[in-house]
Design a protein around this nucleic acid. Structure first.
Length: 837
RNA sequence: GCGGGAGUGGCGGAAUUGGCAGACGCGCUGGAUUUAGGAUCCAGUGGGUUAUACCAUAAGGGUUCAAAUCCCUUCUCCCGCACCA
């Protein structure tokens, strides 16, 4: 019947509609206050020059959401830009002798073209690139804003240095001791660097996670983990030379169990304590050895704790006991105070250390109904219990004792309650060229001077020379030498640039007024568009980008510049695209190129496959066969529409309730409207695009079945068919925009399918007179019967019991109970009739 | 170790509030059409049986008229953090 038709020419159609949408400015938006806004944002890409399947998935998901909300009548902002600074451009410059800016802009052009070939509904008039002076001007402004508010500072400390990238890295960019970008081992270097004071916001970044019910639990718990808040107390011990040694502990209730103290090897107190001690030189050797170890060596080997006795002792401020002071590799200088009290009975690490070096173990908390043996225990007891060996606190519950001891310490001036965080300040300077220059000037006379706002942007010099292994080209006189804005004397510029994560921590604000030349963002526009209603991206940014963006948003909010204090209301983290069970990568040779797929099957097929193959949060296994399946479906829809053209072109959709519809028409209308409901809910409530697509496929199948057999030519029948086809096309529009638009035109419908209102469910059409329910006996399905909808209680029970098959099965059995679930099933609970013996 | 998530046909995956397990698609089988192949359309497809029965949601136990779904025990896999005191 439909085998003599030509195929859908996706190449012609996709090109035609992409051009037409662009000509019409179909996706440009303004702040239309008459309409409700919807800000849909997909994490902007680094312009590597080549789109990969992960991008396709990312942007296809975003596009469905954007198009869907537009059809629902929202004013949708769906912008795109480029996270365009970064090291690859410099590496390419060295390798190919192309300046970083030229290389980057070339990549942007080719990637934009690839994105456009996917038919994405972006408002390209708002495109931004972080490497454009009109963008980094405002990144520099942001830096100054933080600087003037005391949130940007320069400090010398041991920082992460990647020898391969020749730059420092933030803690967040070091993964298990290796560079996040190039995987080279990271070493520690003492350097003076710029930091953003994100730790000031630690509590709010943590607490406000509760305000984000639209974020995945996983991401929230990762951030919680990363911030690592721990409540405890700082307690001052006194060394024999009179010096105080302050420790941080979360368990002040165990203080009577301290049997030794440990200092971090980097702790400056070590040198003071070993003065004149016999073991001084051995301790120095040990410290030198540990300091030479990389972080990985020092932390990776589990259980291998090493330490050395300093020869000095300290006094426990509560018990008055003298305990030995050790130095050990398991104590970190960067956390807490760089000193720890050793309580082996109640801390696993301390117990391991104590056993290794034969240090005493003293139990001060007994579990209820148990008796710990200090000499024999191999597992520290870190739970709560009853206080023992703890002087005036004996007999108390340890939780009560924790509070009492904290209060006591505070009263006596021995210490104070304290909260510590794992989170460190954000190190933002990079010793690289291709980034936003930090707008700071150093004057011999005036010191550190910020570049005045009116002198921004501090431009990157162009046409710079790149040599392998050389230092940043910003060290040349042309850039370096300047005059002091305060005294006019000779001065030099800061040569470090900013971490690219600074650029991406505010781009969602720039999109609100992307072409603004006067300011970073227009307050009114931000007021209208923010926050982002739906943010979409990979889970690899769970901590880095997402936490930095939250931080910057909170800072700007506090200063009255942004109305919201959280940037992203809802977050969707999409899974990876896999092939043969692993991530696609060049080295594994399992890369499928989007260009090739789009070339062979079209953008609609690529989009449909990727949305149908798995729910968005889960990893997706690439399948060439399933791509064929998506392609087949698209042609199946096209053939259906072509076949029905003569009937439906002139047909009119009649109002549903006024029709004298036949059985088949009623059934079809019910399917049409349940499909609308299913697709709407799947997109809106659950983001399950895979089940949305499957519902659309079922509707397509139903339309095929309806057209089968006898000719249907009456106006009523054609009206229902037209309703079916137009509904199918509008539901398809967010998923396969070109196909939907092409067929929309073909059936002679008005305007663009993308300007249509999302179809509304006709509740009457959903109604059924009769329904098929299951009859169970003892929970097993034994029969199906057709009953009038809504039948329940006694009537239903009688009807079921009258069924011949049911009668048969109940013979010789006693009916104990009947469970009726209206419109679902009836369960007959029976006992085998067993006469008394 | 701590935290998060997952385990369902040959495969990707459905099952929304405890109510007919396996929607939809891939693959496979059969039929129609075709000189033939491909494409297309229709039908079938968890295991088992001639057909019932029966067995099936990682494994085992429990609650319930009824469990993939709730509770307990165990196993496996993925992701994040990991000597943070």
């Amino acid at each position: 019947m439909m085998n003599d038709m030509k195929k859908y020419n996706f190449r012609v159609a996709e090109k035609k509609w992409q051009e037409r949408w662009e000509e019409n400015g179909a996706f440009q938006v303004t702040e239309d206050r008459q309409k409700g806004k919807y800000y849909c944002l997909v994490m902007f890409p680094y312009p590597s020059g080549k789109l990969h399947m992960g991008h396709v998935r990312n942007y296809a998901i975003g596009d469905v959401i954007a198009r869907f909300y537009k059809m629902l009548g929202h004013n949708v902002l769906n912008p795109m830009g480029w996270d365009a600074f970064g090291l690859p451009a410099e590496n390419a410059a060295i390798k190919n002798r192309i300046p970083p800016d030229k290389w980057t802009w070339g990549n942007i052009d080719s990637m934009r073209e690839q994105l456009q070939s996917l038919g994405l509904s972006y408002d390209w008039t708002r495109e931004v690139a972080t490497c454009h002076p009109e963008y980094y001007h405002w990144t520099q402004w942001l830096f100054l804003h933080l600087y003037h508010n005391g949130l940007a500072y320069k400090k010398k400390q041991a920082v992460n240095w990647c020898p391969s990238c020749s730059t420092v890295l933030a803690n967040e960019q070091v993964v298990a001791g290796h560079c996040e970008r190039c995987e080279h081992e990271v070493i520690k270097k003492d350097l003076e660097q710029w930091f953003f004071k994100i730790t000031d916001y630690a509590d709010r970044l943590l607490d406000d996670l509760e305000k984000l019910p639209g974020w995945p639990e996983k991401v929230k718990s990762m951030q919680e983990n990363w911030i690592g808040r721990s409540q405890g107390a700082e307690i001052k011990f006194t060394a024999e030379n009179g010096k105080g040694i302050t420790v941080f502990t979360t368990r002040p209730d165990t203080i009577f169990g301290v049997s030794y103290m440990v200092l971090a090897p980097e702790n400056p107190l070590v040198e003071e304590l070993i003065q004149g001690k016999a073991q001084a030189n051995q301790v120095r050797e040990f410290v030198a050895k540990v300091r030479n170890q990389s972080d990985i060596e020092r932390t990776s080997v589990e259980g291998e704790k090493e330490g050395i006795f300093t020869g000095a002792y300290a006094t426990n401020p509560l018990s008055g006991e003298q305990v030995p002071i050790w130095v050990a590799n398991y104590v970190l200088m960067e956390y807490g105070t760089g000193a720890v009290m050793g309580v082996p009975a109640h801390d696993q690490r301390d117990l391991e250390f104590a056993r290794q070096y034969n240090l005493p173990v003293k139990v001060v908390i007994q579990p209820i109904g148990d008796d710990l043996g200090a000499a024999t225990m191999t597992e520290a007891y870190s739970e709560q219990g009853i206080m023992v060996n703890s002087g005036m606190f004996n007999g108390l519950d340890s939780e009560v004792a924790r509070l009492k001891i904290s209060a006591y310490i505070q009263e006596q001036g021995l210490g104070e309650e304290k909260v510590n965080y794992r989170l460190r300040d954000w190190l933002i300077s990079r010793q690289r060229y291709w980034g936003a220059p930090i707008p700071i000037i150093y004057c011999d006379h005036c010191g550190t001077v910020p570049v005045p706002e009116e002198e921004l942007p501090v431009l990157l010099p162009e046409n710079v020379a790149f040599e392998p292994g050389s230092e940043s080209p910003l060290h040349t006189d042309g850039f370096l030498k300047t005059t002091c804005p305060q005294c006019g004397g000779p001065a030099h510029r800061e040569t470090d640039t900013m971490d690219t994560f600074v650029c991406s921590s505010w781009y969602f604000l720039r999109f609100c007024s992307a072409r603004d030349k006067e300011q970073a963002f227009d307050k009114e526009s931000v007021q209208y568009w923010m926050s982002v209603d739906q943010y979409i991206g990979g889970v690899e940014h769970a901590i880095l980008h997402l936490m930095y963006s939250r931080f910057i948003t909170k800072v700007l909010h506090d200063h009255g510049l942004v109305p919201v204090d959280e940037p992203f209301t809802n977050l969707l983290t999409q899974g990876m695209v896999l092939k043969d069970g692993t991530k696609m990568s060049k080295s594994k040779g399992n890369v499928v190129s989007p260009e090739e797929i789009i070339g062979n099957y079209g953008a609609d097929t690529a989009r449909l496959f990727i949305l149908f193959a798995a729910p968005p949060e889960r990893d997706l296994e690439w399948s060439d066969e399933a791509v064929e399946g998506a392609y087949r479906f698209i042609n199946r829809v096209w053939r259906l529409a072509q076949h029905l053209l003569p009937e439906i072109k002139e047909a009119e959709v009649l109002p549903g309730d006024s029709l004298a519809l036949g059985r088949a028409e009623k059934d079809l209308r019910r399917i049409i409207h349940t499909t609308i409901k299913r697709v709407s809910d799947d997109i809106k409530i659950r983001f399950n695009f895979n089940t949305a697509v499957s519902a659309i496929m079922e509707l397509t199948n139903a339309l095929y079945h309806y057209t089968e057999g006898a000719d249907r030519k009456s106006p009523v029948q054609n009206g229902v068919l037209r309703e079916g086809v137009t509904t199918l096309l509008t539901l398809l529009a967010p998923f396969t925009p070109h196909l939907a638009e092409e067929l929309w035109e073909a059936i002679g419908a008005e305007g663009s399918v993308h300007d249509q209102k999302w179809p509304v469910v006709d509740q009457d059409a959903l109604k059924e007179d009769e329904i098929n329910i299951a009859v169970q006996i003892n929970g097993k399905v034994r029969d199906h019967i057709q009953i009038p909808v809504g039948l329940k209680g006694k009537e239903l029970e009688e009807l079921v019991l009258a069924q011949p098959r049911v009668k048969e099965l109940l013979k010789g059995k006693e009916l104990a109970k009947v469970i009726c679930v209206p419109n679902k099933l009836v369960n007959l609970v029976v006992r085998v009739h067993n006469p008394e013996k």
